[in-house]
């Protein structure tokens, strides 16, 4: 039965070549009237990442814009979400007080908030925010960092992070808290050395969900009117110009970066989980 086992192990690696084959068959099949470009055309876009594409800049530029946007938005979500989650997890009163608000805010999709965020932040960018108006007419990344965009990224990422952190703090084993108590530990010490380490695996899980949401939000937000940079923008613009090869190349990039994000955080989370789950 070992060939089944080895097939099972190789299957994930086989899926992508099979899909490529299917794609290729669809294009070249007899009487095919598909608008889809061939894999080779998309590939040739992907291997020239520094070439200007339909005068929006290179693929690398568009990617960088999206990545820097998500860096700002997600970092803000982490810096605010984790402390809120820790406090809510540790204090029943705060949890009661905030949970209704969070449950009301959470279902509001970040994309739905884009118009509101434009009203709130106008079209201000980090350039104005940091008072660096001398950059204004240069091709600088900060000119592409609309505050409204960062706000909705924050919105998309913060709730999974808060909920993961609460879950983590609440899953601290009672035995470990009691052990710390009978060993005479002060509260702050217990928080830092018992609660946080116990909560780490769930916090990482929240971060993983959060960055996935952020990535979806940023690509979608960039596709809406009012933007003229980023991978999402390039997807929409290349579609309008019927450059489906560029559009598909962008989708490939979005998929790869998304997978990279969640696999990376998963790996970090697993490192912290190893110790928690190996108790006897």
């Amino acid at each position: 039965m070992s060939w089944i086992g080895s097939l099972k192990n190789r299957l994930p690696g086989l899926v992508i070549p099979l899909l490529l084959l299917l794609w290729w068959v669809l294009i070249t099949g007899e009487g095919s009237d598909t608008l889809l470009p061939s894999p080779a055309e998309v590939f040739s876009i992907l291997v020239h990442p520094f070439q200007d594409q339909i005068s929006t800049g290179s693929l690398i530029w568009s990617m960088t814009v999206s990545l820097v946007r998500i860096t700002f938005g997600f970092s803000l979500a982490v810096v605010i979400g984790i402390p809120i989650g820790l406090i809510m997890g540790a204090s029943r009163h705060v949890r009661k007080f905030l949970s209704l608000m969070i449950e009301m805010a959470r279902p509001l999709s970040a994309i739905a908030l884009l118009p509101l965020s434009i009203i709130l932040f106008k079209s201000e960018t980090l350039t104005q925010f940091f008072g660096m108006s001398y950059l204004r007419y240069q091709r600088h990344l900060f000119n592409e960092m609309q505050l409204g965009m960062i706000f909705i990224l924050f919105w998309g990422g913060v709730f999974p992070i808060i909920l993961g952190t609460i879950q983590g703090v609440r899953s601290v084993r009672k035995l470990h808290l009691e052990a710390a108590k009978v060993l005479g530990a002060r509260k702050a010490f217990v928080f830092r050395h018992v609660m946080i380490p116990s909560a780490l695996p769930d916090i990482f899980h929240g971060l993983k969900l959060g960055i996935g949401r952020c990535w979806m939000v940023i690509i979608a937000a960039e596709m809406l009117p009012g933007t003229n940079s980023g991978i999402g923008y390039l997807i929409r613009y290349s579609y309008q110009l019927s450059r489906y090869d560029i559009m598909l190349a962008c989708l490939v990039i979005v998929a790869i970066i998304g997978a990279f994000f969640s696999k990376g955080l998963e790996a970090l989370g697993e490192k912290s989980l190893v110790l928690r789950s190996r108790e006897r």
């Binding site: 035995l175 052990a179 060993l183």
Partner: peptide, 13 residues
């Protein structure tokens, strides 16, 4: 001092 039945060591330390 207090010693529990088992599993009270902190696994991450």
């Amino acid at each position: 001092g207090y010693v529990f039945q088992q599993g009270a060591l902190f696994p991450w330390m």
